[in-house]
């Protein structure tokens, strides 16, 4: 599921949005995505494991899935009428062999 349009909100992982003032808080918003790896990338990463170091295929995969989770969180906040999210946290968990869940959550707020 792809988001229709890219929404950009003010986000921060501190209690306020620096430089802005919060007028009201709307509650928790979350976004998550579960990703498994492409088999071609799997084989390539297996080859890369001969030398170790950075596994770029995994880095890219996790980055794009984390962006998707953030987008989902932003869509939820947007539908609540918020224009900012404070105290954003990320969590990663291994839900099954070959898949991992990327989860992010925060508090939707209205700022001015």
């Amino acid at each position: 599921m792809q988001p229709e349009a890219t929404i950009s909100l003010h986000m921060s992982n501190v209690e306020t949005i620096p430089g802005k003032s919060i007028t009201s808080s709307l509650g928790l918003v979350t976004g998550s995505t579960v990703r498994a790896k492409h088999i071609g990338k799997d084989i390539f990463a297996g080859l890369k494991n001969i030398v170790g170091g950075e596994l770029k295929a995994y880095t890219e995969l996790l980055n794009e899935s984390r962006n998707e989770a953030l987008q989902r969180m932003m869509m939820q906040a947007h539908s609540m009428g918020a224009n900012g999210i404070v105290n954003v946290r990320f969590a990663t968990s291994n839900v099954a062999a070959g898949a991992s869940e990327l989860f992010c959550y925060g508090t939707a707020v209205i700022i001015e």
Binding site: S12, E15, N49, V51, L62
Partner: peptide
């Protein structure tokens, strides 16, 4: 720190970077 120590700000943005690393099979 989560609070700014005497700094002023116009606006802010969330930054996030990740990297995957691992040792080699032989290691």
């Amino acid at each position: 720190f989560s609070e700014m120590n005497g700094m002023s700000a116009q606006s802010s943005t969330l930054l996030h970077v990740s990297i995957c690393v691992g040792p080699s099979i032989g290691q």
